Amino acid sequence: MSEVLNFLIHRHSYPKLMGPAPSHEQLDAMFSAAIAAPDHGQLQPYRFRVFDIDHLSELGEHFENALRAESGHEQKALDKARNLPTRAPMVIVAICHQTPDHPKAPAQEQLITAALATFQVINAAEALGFGAYWRTGDLAYKASLAKQLKLKENESIIGFIYVGTPDGEPKSSKKSLTSADIWRLG
Rank of each mutant, 00 (worst) to 15 (best):
residue 1 M to Q: 11
residue 2 S to R: 08
residue 8 L to G: 10
residue 13 S to Q: 00
residue 22 P to T: 02
residue 24 H to N: 08
residue 26 Q to C: 05
residue 29 A to H: 08
residue 34 A to M: 11
residue 36 A to D: 13
residue 41 G to P: 05
residue 41 G to S: 01
residue 42 Q to A: 12
residue 45 P to Y: 10
residue 49 R to Y: 12
residue 49 R to C: 12
residue 50 V to T: 07
residue 54 D to R: 14
residue 55 H to S: 15
residue 57 S to L: 05
residue 61 E to D: 15
residue 65 N to A: 09
residue 68 R to G: 06
residue 69 A to K: 10
residue 69 A to W: 07
residue 71 S to C: 07
residue 78 L to A: 08
residue 80 K to G: 07
residue 88 A to W: 02
residue 89 P to Q: 08
residue 91 V to E: 02
residue 93 V to Q: 00
residue 94 A to Q: 04
residue 95 I to H: 02
residue 95 I to T: 08
residue 100 P to V: 03
residue 100 P to D: 03
residue 104 K to S: 00
residue 106 P to D: 01
residue 108 Q to C: 10
residue 109 E to M: 14
residue 109 E to P: 07
residue 109 E to R: 07
residue 111 L to Y: 09
residue 111 L to R: 10
residue 112 I to Y: 03
residue 112 I to V: 15
residue 114 A to R: 06
residue 115 A to L: 06
residue 116 L to C: 14
residue 119 F to D: 14
residue 121 V to Q: 00
residue 131 G to S: 02
residue 131 G to F: 00
residue 131 G to K: 00
residue 132 A to H: 01
residue 133 Y to M: 14
residue 133 Y to L: 11
residue 134 W to N: 03
residue 134 W to C: 01
residue 135 R to G: 12
residue 136 T to D: 11
residue 136 T to F: 08
residue 138 D to C: 05
residue 138 D to T: 12
residue 139 L to C: 03
residue 140 A to V: 09
residue 140 A to P: 09
residue 145 L to P: 06
residue 146 A to F: 05
residue 154 N to M: 07
residue 155 E to Q: 13
residue 155 E to H: 07
residue 161 I to Q: 13
residue 163 V to R: 01
residue 165 T to D: 04
residue 167 D to Y: 09
residue 168 G to I: 02
residue 172 S to K: 13
residue 181 D to V: 11
residue 182 I to Q: 02
residue 183 W to H: 15
residue 185 L to S: 13
residue 185 L to D: 10
residue 185 L to W: 14
residue 186 G to Y: 04
